[in-house]
């Protein structure tokens, strides 16, 4: 069985858990799945085993805490510690895929915004000036920025797994975080000066480029 089938079965089986056991198990599931550098197949296999065990035990009136202990985070860390990591080849492919998606979205939005500004507000023109130097610099600044933000979100989600967090506080945290990250990207775009070779390209070039990059990224994704 591959990981996709295991996930599907897991989703169905989880419904048989009692509310208390479900809360315990789902926290563990999210926490373990968020350990992003672990092999997916092995991760889903152990998750399905834990669920089967819990269902069997539940039938005999036991609770999740009795089976896995009352320190779920510690237990999950133990499991994660024993899971094999992602193979390097997969890791590289996933990295390439991430970059391609990033460039695809970046290029597509570029073209789209240009089209909207031009046709809806009469601003700018069909053609857009691109400076190779600044484009490259912007790319190399925003990529690590994006990775950093991604890492922060994952760490926050992992941290929040086994605790009760005020919903309003959580909303505020995400809101401030969202504003700050958008602000950071805009700052990068704004403060990088124009330099390097100048090109004039029509907006549909960016749209097309975005689509091609996206399809390539999809191809790479299927290889992973």
């Amino acid at each position: 069985m591959n990981s996709k089938e295991l996930i599907e079965i897991n989703n169905k089986k989880r419904k048989k858990l009692t509310a208390e056991n479900l809360a315990y198990y789902e926290n563990m599931l999210v926490y373990i799945r968020l350990s992003h550098d672990k092999a997916e197949q092995e991760t889903e296999e152990i998750l399905s085993e834990l669920l089967d065990h819990l269902l069997d035990a539940q039938a005999e009136g036991k609770t999740a805490a009795e089976i896995f202990g009352d320190k779920p985070r510690q237990y999950a860390d133990e499991i994660i510690g024993e899971l094999p990591g992602i193979v390097t080849k997969k890791r590289i492919l996933m990295f390439i895929m991430g970059i391609l998606y990033f460039m695809a979205v970046f290029s597509f939005l570029h073209g789209l915004l240009n089209a909207i500004f031009y046709y809806a507000f009469g601003l700018g023109s069909v053609y857009r000036e691109i400076y190779m130097g600044s484009a490259a610099l912007k790319f190399f600044i925003s990529l690590p920025l994006l990775l950093g933000l991604y890492y922060l979100v994952i760490q926050y989600l992992r941290w929040s797994c086994f605790q009760q967090i005020n919903k309003i506080a959580e909303f505020l945290i995400f809101w401030v975080f969202g504003i700050l990250s958008v602000g950071l990207f805009l700052a990068v775009l704004y403060f990088v000066p124009d330099f390097g070779l100048k090109f004039e390209l029509p907006f549909y070039f960016f749209l097309l480029m975005g689509c091609i990059l996206f399809l390539t990224a999809q191809k790479v994704k299927n290889m992973v």
Binding site: I46, E49, I67, G69, E78, I79, E82, L83
Partner: peptide, 12 residues
């Protein structure tokens, strides 16, 4: 042994 503790061992 606690039931859950067999899984980390099985993985290892």
């Amino acid at each position: 042994v606690s039931e859950g503790s067999i899984y980390p061992v099985l993985l290892r």
